[in-house]
């Protein structure tokens, strides 16, 4: 099952490598991982998308929590939450027809064209992983994808529930 884990940890040198090392050392799966400092610069927040059965997931949560730098970990997928990912994608847009079609698809997915070259469009799109996948597939049917980059997902619980110190 796919899970999204949010981790609050000390913003210390090496704390990210401890998380990454743990996943490879114990053969846990990482689908994506994002990290950045929070509004409190002494804290970093990591979002990990991972897969595994209940037993493996329980171990992942416990093992991450055991790391000395980790203050809190929560499984966002246990309850209602919002999940977003950013996609930047560069596609071929050589002629009117393909330019129009790319623009139309982008509008439908509520993305935006953020840069234009002689023969390419660069598009920005946010959403959950499924939406991004659908957009990429649709674009690929219409034109040639030159390059793409995804941020990996970030997430936050809905309502009053919060992950904080």
């Amino acid at each position: 099952m796919r899970r999204i884990l949010a981790v609050l940890l000390e913003n210390e040198p090496g704390s990210l490598s401890r998380i990454v090392g743990l996943f490879s050392q114990r053969a846990f799966n990482i689908e994506s991982l994002t990290v950045a400092p929070t509004e409190d610069p002494s804290l970093s927040r990591i979002t990990i998308a991972t897969r595994g059965d209940d037993r493996v997931l329980e171990q992942i949560v416990k093992q991450v929590n055991k790391l000395i730098d980790v203050i809190k970990i929560t499984d966002l997928t246990e309850r209602s939450h919002v999940e977003r990912e950013l996609l930047l994608i560069k596609v071929l847009a050589m002629n009117d027809k393909s330019r129009t079609e790319v623009k139309r698809i982008t509008d439908i997915f509520r993305g935006s064209i953020i840069d234009i070259g002689k023969q390419v469009y660069t598009i920005q799109l946010t959403g959950d992983a499924e939406k991004l996948n659908a957009f990429v597939t649709t674009l690929a049917n219409e034109t040639e994808i030159i390059e793409s980059v995804r941020s990996g997902c970030v997430g936050i619980a809905r309502g009053e529930k919060a992950l904080r110190v």
């Binding site: 090496g14 490598s17 401890r18 050392q25």
Partner: peptide, 14 residues
């Protein structure tokens, strides 16, 4: 050495 020993320590400091 902090990198080398990471999987076999409880914690480490630079």
């Amino acid at each position: 050495i902090v990198g080398c020993s990471r999987p076999i320590v409880k914690h480490s400091f630079n």
